[in-house]
């Protein structure tokens, strides 16, 4: 029995295997429609996240399984003060697999130790969100047909964005990858990401403050939202805000096959005018997330077609 709490819990060959399963599922959905018949997924969401929860539930339903769970802590026994360990131990008696979101970092580690069934981390605070990274990886794979040799630009709030840190960790394992970090000074990529992920592998990277100066180099542009509350003063935020909004004009110098990604929800950091550009891949990520979650559920339940 195995749980997935961090994207690096999966080896590169396992990622390849999940991607192959997801692609086969997209091509042959009927083949998978009953593989989890009789199995139950519990979605334990101690904080609301409609998108991720629905994605897990849709994935399980498409595999022919059933779902149960709660969508916020107030509707669970956590509201009465029950520990994560006890809640998951109880749910482990009802379900075959658990997908869990919790506002506290490391809560899924506690769950995985106690549940007695596989646990998937569906986001723990600002820490890990491995299935978002799985969605990102399938999107890159389906658009670029390789992970190697890509130049990946990451733009916006690189300091607090867990999806950015996870994707750097995942992509840093592939040969020939380069990173370009585009952010204001206040939201630069944390030093530990560089010292832990990039420097030990001698992966080239650069840090810049505008996307225009690097746009022609990029194979992937991963956008995140720059939030006003991250700045020390309003004036700096207003001055910098527009710098990190992607518009069709800024895309003009990008490669024709570059892809634009975003973990969603977006507010205004990608102009809606970009949505119709063939390079926009952020809604593909949503769909890909469902397939990768389904592939992961199958793997952890040890179900085969």
């Amino acid at each position: 029995m195995r749980s997935i709490l961090n994207i690096t819990d999966l080896s590169l060959s396992e990622l390849d295997e999940l991607i192959a399963t997801a692609e086969d599922m997209i091509a042959n959905p009927k083949k998978y429609s009953e593989v989890c018949h009789g199995k139950k997924l519990a979605t334990l969401f101690f904080e609301p996240s409609t998108r991720t929860r629905l994605s897990f539930e849709a994935a399980m339903l498409e595999l022919g399984g059933s779902v149960l769970g709660f969508s916020e802590a107030s509707s669970s026994s956590a509201a009465k003060g029950e520990s994560v360990a006890d809640t998951t131990r109880v749910v482990g008696c009802y379900a075959d697999i658990i997908a869990m979101r919790h506002p506290k970092e490391g809560a899924p580690v506690v769950a995985a130790r106690k549940a007695g069934v596989p646990v998937i981390n569906a986001g723990d605070g600002g820490h890990n969100h491995p299935t978002q990274t799985l969605a990102d990886l399938l999107t890159i794979w389906r658009k670029k047909h390789t992970f190697e040799g890509l130049t990946i630009g990451m733009c916006g709030d690189l300091k607090f964005g867990r999806t950015v840190h996870s994707l750097v960790g995942a992509m840093a394992r592939y040969a020939g990858v380069k990173f370009v970090f585009i952010s204001p000074e206040e939201l630069k990529i944390p030093q530990y990401v560089i010292t832990d992920e990039l420097e030990p592998r001698n992966i080239p990277y650069k840090e810049v403050s505008t996307m225009e100066e690097v746009m022609p180099e990029l194979d992937v542009l991963y956008m995140t939202r720059v939030q006003g509350e991250r700045f020390f003063n309003e004036a700096d935020y207003i001055r910098l805000r527009d710098t990190y909004i992607l518009t069709p004009e800024k895309l003009a110098t990008a490669k024709e096959d570059m892809i634009v990604m975003h973990p969603l929800p977006r507010v205004n950091e990608i102009s809606v005018k970009v949505d119709d550009d063939p390079r926009a891949a952020y809604f593909d990520q949503v769909l890909n997330g469902k397939y990768m979650r389904a592939a992961l559920i199958m793997k952890l339940l040890e179900v085969t077609v």
């Binding site: 520990s83 360990a85 919790h102 506290k104 970092e105 490391g106 580690v109 506690v110 605070g125 820490h127």
Partner: peptide, 29 residues
């Protein structure tokens, strides 16, 4: 933000993640 900050009965536990730099990280967060 660590789960150990709210669940007092959890044993705090650290693992060695970088021997050369003597870095230990919390097994939870």
């Amino acid at each position: 933000r660590c789960i150990t900050s709210v669940e007092q009965e959890l044993t705090h536990e650290f693992k060695l993640t970088d021997r050369a730099r003597q870095i230990y990280r919390c097994v939870y967060c």
